[in-house]
């Protein structure tokens, strides 16, 4: 038993406070200029495996109409700017999320919906569900709630826009700088992570 515990400890995630990580570069003029446009036009890719996806249709359509703040749904990861993770992530879907995230073009942002991405929510002790998303991907913004109502989603997006404009949404830089740490956690959860490329082999 003791041995097992030790082994488990060896395997443990090296806890660091990701928000303390320093990745603030000085922004050049062009980056500041670009951030104005980036904050006003956000194309999103919604990865709807969790229950939070239910709240997205009212947010997108006539009732709350997210197009009026410049957001639009996009069809593929290459075109999108923000990845919405709408709820719990099983280990199986985490792999797909990582592939998807790595296909997106810089600068890219991740928004986690609901308590499941935050700390596991009601699935905190499940064997099949990961409980903290920011061990695996750099999350820029969490929207709390189980599930967050459209009002909360809209105000969350507004907040994301402000962060982008001020140059504070730097998750993608964090992912590049601390890639080893993220990769280690991913490998720990999945066993292996590789991007399969069937067309250019």
């Amino acid at each position: 038993m003791a041995l097992e515990n030790e082994k488990f400890n060896e395997d443990k995630i090296n806890e660091i406070d990701v928000n303390e990580l320093d990745c603030r570069d000085t922004l050049t003029f062009w980056e500041k200029f670009g951030n104005i446009f980036r904050s006003k036009s956000i194309w999103m890719l919604h990865y709807c495996t969790g229950c939070g996806a239910m709240e997205l249709p009212p947010t997108m359509t006539s009732r709350f109409d997210m197009e009026r703040i410049g957001m639009a749904p996009m069809a593929t990861p290459r075109q999108a700017d923000v990845l919405l993770i709408t709820g719990y992530l099983s280990v199986k879907t985490l792999r797909r999320i990582i592939y998807t995230y790595e296909q997106m073009q810089n600068p890219k942002y991740v928004v986690g919906f609901g308590s499941c991405t935050l700390n596991g929510g009601v699935y905190y002790d499940s064997y099949a569900v990961i409980s903290r998303l920011d061990y695996y991907l750099p999350v820029d913004l969490y929207i709390a709630g189980c599930m967050p109502r459209p009002e909360a989603v809209m105000s969350g997006f507004k907040k994301l826009m402000n962060m982008i404009k001020k140059g504070e949404a730097l998750g993608w830089k964090r992912y590049q700088k601390y890639y080893d740490w993220y990769k280690k956690n991913q490998v720990r959860a999945l066993g292996e992570v590789y991007v399969k490329d069937e067309f250019h082999e």
Partner: peptide, 27 residues
């Protein structure tokens, strides 16, 4: 958007979209 009874994006939205895509990286 008006036909769908929404408010819709501002008229200059497509300029912002274009400039934003030019400010991103690509492969």
């Amino acid at each position: 958007a008006r036909i769908h009874r929404r408010v819709g994006s501002p008229w200059y939205q497509n300029f912002i979209d274009l400039f934003k895509t030019w400010s991103k990286s690509s492969i």
